[in-house]
Amino acid sequence: MAVEVAATRRRFTRAEYYRMAEAGILGEDDRVELIRGEIVEMSPIGRRHRAFVGNLNQLLVVRLAGRAIVWVQNPVALTDDTEPQPDLAVLRRRPVPYKEREAWAEDVLLLIEVADSSLAYDRSTKLRLYAEAGIPEYWVVDCVAETVEVHRDPGPEGYRDVSRVAGTATLALQAFPDVELTTAEIFA
């Protein structure tokens, strides 16, 4: 009997991915992230996406000053074959500086993806990856609907605590309950 399989793409490890970068095969112009061994091109960033990333960055940097580190569109290592580049990452301060060792899942307090065309991907593939890696809190910011989906309590099946924030509302960070952001500020 014929077993007709689809041809499979070669998958890469993080180590191979970095060798490609060192050799100049993946360059500064490549907007890519490593997702389960596949080098995935990231969706183009539109005007609203840029603006909301900027707003979130400014709000978080100011309100978390001295308490946590805020990264914008930097890679976070999750496993040997997965290294996404979320729009924003709130990282814990740690004894080993980030210049000495990359940010791993255990350093992450909150990840945020700002989504326009990539909404379905951010809600499915990315969400499962983040939950599996034990990222404690994940926000999906919908540029079009101007809503925020807050995912907490990760497990192998996804996040068990999901809420959707729409309209005029206030969000607090799980890691810092006293740090609040309003939807009006995020979507200004």
Partner: peptide
Amino acid sequence: MASYEIRTRRF
């Protein structure tokens, strides 16, 4: 919802 297809890096 806008559609979005995953595209891997080509060599």
